[in-house]
Design a protein around this nucleic acid. Structure first.
Lengths: 341, 341
DNA sequence: CGAATTATGCTCTCATTGAGCATAATAAGG
DNA sequence: CCTTATTATGCTCAATGAGAGCATAATTCG
């Protein structure tokens, strides 16, 4: 190993040199995504024996320890974990982020060791799950309701969020701090001149977390409890992980053809558009969406048609794999919403 | 990272339920970046007592154990690690990726535990370092020489890389596999019609690693040793981490104003351009670069001038902080190089 | 003073993208 | 059968942004 920190002056004495570093428990957390009926869903488990004091109530993301003896890589460990807990064979897997904050988990439940969690994003098609516990698909936007603009500006922005942010802004110490907060809130939620940026999911979540949980200012406790955060709560920092995943997915859609891992092998262009809209949380211009797909040669016609319901039948397409290795950037457009939609 | 479907082969029974998860050693690795004299540099340490059999020779990235008792968060742990080992106060820190492959580290050196490493990108201005070991700044492109196109197409692409790739392509089992390899190589290194994409640093490194280290095909050992990989070698998987960092940094430059953390408070537009070029590994059109900066309001004039050497004196600018919170995307342009520059 | 050198302003063109009109193909209802 | 509603698909137009290069300004060097 490379020379470890020997005897530097620190608040807490370092470990004795030569000894292996102090260990922390390492876990894997999975955000498993599917889209059906224009609803983006994530897989959640509801542990029956989870004590309420554990940092949150309700659902949790599939989680399991990373066992170095069983898994050669983190990726394979995650695939195995998902298969064991849900019976799913996911089509795409990507590491998101490693969470290791002290306050993310009470130390008792891991025998005193800090719990480090490597979070993953996994994509699949919605299918029945057979897990050991209470495993089921849940609407992603149930946990982050302010992120879905498909049916207009979400109501929760005007009611709980905006006033809370305004109070937080007013509680700033000086004018400079006030201005900073005002700008930050404006950019995050598109309140001022700034447009709504679908990708800034994590920034929004963290702003809400700060303002609703910590209160207005340090040492200035407000009456707003953690429950003031809109949307369904989750265990531990699982909602933060959800926000990380949604932001990453939205960002990556624009330059990587990930959508097709959420779709069946053949699909109409409108079905594809609906999935993209569901993930992006906003509506897209139909003709322009099609034009981009054709221009980027992301799809190829199968020749078959699908006539469902009224109207002219739509042609069925499939993903054109060759594109994966041709264009440096091959994805579906995801414009930033203008201030006044 | 595109998921590879490996790793399911290791069938080892799961740990007994209820027991705390098996622990792995967790470390932090830092890619500390500075740019001076148009050379992008990273900080490296050269451990004197490192045995050559340890997975590579020569330099290593600053590394240290993550001690949960001392650090509330991974970020703070990294900042402390960097300060202790190098005396630097970095200006920007971002988590990159967590590496945990089995073959990244021999198990003996950690007392049998798997070494997991959370890699970070850190930006600073170049300054003297005072570490305990042999700590110094090194040219980033010394480790990844094929990434620097500022002085034309790098020679190593035509000499060691291209022939190696061609042999690898020829060694494919069937025509389909062959075509796949051909495309992959073409896209990575801009050999065919595909342009050179500066961001695909990691893809290129992994392709080189596969072809040079593993040999042409499974079971088909070639004469190419690990040393066939162009550029200066590093310990363990540190070069992979370097590639991850460079790719992330190049990608993020375009939409986040990270460059300014590498620059002094006041700078000329051309100095700024040189830093961006150094990181991007390619030249930029001077007038268009300036136009973009002005259009995005990323900078503001200080009124002062700098006359250095010949020619008309340049105006000094500073970063306009307000932009951080206004535009959803505020960065410097980084075009993908055309096939024939 | 003239040549070389660097900074800065401006134009021209082309590709991309937002927006919307127009047409095609089907089902449902009189 | 004919009309209307509905969905799919093709096409145009305008605004924007990016690539390329010419032109001008302000210096240093000989």
């Amino acid at each position: 190993m490379i020379a470890d920190g020997d005897g530097h002056s620190t608040d807490i004495p370092a470990t004795a040199p030569g000894r292996p570093p102090r260990v922390a428990a390492v876990g894997l957390t999975a955000v498993i995504v599917a889209v059906t009926d224009e609803v983006p869903r994530i897989l959640s488990v509801r542990p029956a024996d989870l004590s309420r004091s554990d940092g949150g109530d309700g659902d949790a993301l599939p989680f399991g320890p990373f066992d170095p003896d069983r898994h050669r890589t983190l990726d394979s460990g995650l695939r195995r974990l998902v298969a064991e807990q849900t019976g799913l064979d996911v089509r795409y897997v990507e590491q998101l982020y490693t969470f290791g904050d002290k306050d993310r988990h009470p130390d008792e439940s891991t025998g005193g060791a800090r719990l480090l969690s490597v979070a993953y994003l996994a994509l699949t098609r919605e299918q029945p799950v057979h897990g050991s516990g209470d495993v089921r698909w849940r609407d992603w936007y149930g946990f982050l309701p302010w992120e879905d603009w498909r049916f207009g500006r979400p109501g929760c922005i005007d009611d709980p969020i905006r006033p809370t942010l305004l109070r937080w802004i007013d509680a700033a110490d000086d004018a400079g701090e006030r201005r900073g907060r005002e700008e930050r809130a404006g950019i995050c939620f598109g309140l001022g001149i700034a447009p709504w940026d679908p990708v800034r999911v994590l920034e929004r979540y963290e702003l809400l977390y700060e303002t609703a949980l910590v209160g207005e200012a340090p040492g200035n406790r407000s009456d707003s409890a953690p429950e003031a955060l809109p949307g369904v709560a989750m265990a531990l920092d699982n909602r933060r992980i959800l926000a990380t995943a949604l932001g990453r997915l939205r960002g990556k859609l624009a330059y990587r053809p990930l959508v097709f891992d959420l779709l069946p092998g053949e699909f109409t262009l409108f079905q594809l558009q609906r999935v993209v809209e569901a993930l992006g949380g906003q509506r897209l211009h139909k003709q322009n969406f099609r034009r981009t797909l054709v221009a980027n040669a992301l799809i190829e016609p199968t020749g078959r048609m699908q006539s469902e319901g009224r109207g002219r039948p739509a042609e069925l397409f499939r993903f054109r794999r060759a594109v994966l290795r041709a264009k440096p950037t091959a994805g579906v457009a995801m414009p930033t919403l203008r201030p006044a939609p």
